[in-house]
Computed example of a mutant assay.
Amino acid sequence: MTREPVAATEVFKALGDPIRWNIVQQMAQQEELACSVLEDTLPVSKPTISYHTKILTQAGLIEVRKRGRNYFYSLRREVLRSLMDEMWLLAPGPRLVVDGTATGPSSADRPALKAAVGDDTARPAALLTW
């Protein structure tokens, strides 16, 4: 299945709503998120959740899988990475590189290095590149 390219403007429009931003944040914490979780965590109705997930799907940010009567959502992380790459072209500067790939992992995901001789404290390491 080939996917259409995702327009950055559509992604930004979709992320501009606080409810949709909350949905994306919840999806980023898991591989797959059940709709029932959104129903429990969001202060909106089921039809409103459906509306917001439809917009996120149309923008290319999420994929939807139906199993029986249940819907499951997963974040298309490659779309966000591509968007970050596009943004970086507009304002280049130092960028975190992990394992040869420009990314932005949390400090917990970075390898730890010892800062100096005699210092046994492990600290997150990062390589910044242009």
Rank of each mutant, 00 (worst) to 15 (best):
M1K: 08
M1V: 13
T2D: 12
T2C: 00
T2V: 14
R3N: 12
R3V: 09
E4Q: 14
E4W: 05
E4R: 15
V6S: 05
T9Y: 06
E10P: 00
K13H: 09
G16D: 08
D17I: 00
D17R: 06
I19N: 03
R20W: 06
R20Y: 01
N22Q: 11
I23Y: 02
I23F: 04
I23T: 01
V24K: 02
V24Y: 05
Q26M: 13
A28I: 00
A28H: 07
L33Q: 05
C35F: 01
V37F: 07
L42G: 04
L42I: 04
P43Q: 04
P43G: 03
V44H: 02
V44G: 02
S45H: 03
P47T: 04
P47I: 04
T48C: 00
I49Q: 01
S50Y: 01
S50R: 04
S50W: 04
S50I: 04
L56C: 10
L56R: 06
Q58L: 13
A59V: 08
A59R: 02
L61D: 10
L61G: 08
V64Y: 00
V64N: 09
K66D: 06
K66R: 15
R69P: 00
N70P: 00
F72S: 13
Y73G: 07
L75T: 09
R76W: 07
R76A: 12
E78T: 14
E78R: 14
V79M: 10
V79R: 08
R81K: 11
L83K: 05
M84A: 13
M87L: 15
W88A: 15
W88S: 14
L89K: 15
L90Q: 12
A91I: 10
P92T: 09
G93Q: 05
G93L: 02
G93S: 12
G93I: 09
L96M: 14
V97I: 12
V97T: 03
V98K: 01
T101A: 08
T103W: 03
G104S: 06
P105Y: 05
P105F: 03
S107D: 07
R110A: 04
R110H: 05
R110I: 00
R110W: 03
P111F: 05
P111N: 07
L113S: 07
K114T: 09
A116V: 02
V117F: 13
D119L: 09
D119R: 09
D120T: 14
T121V: 15
A122H: 03
A126Y: 06
A126G: 15
L127S: 11
W130Y: 11
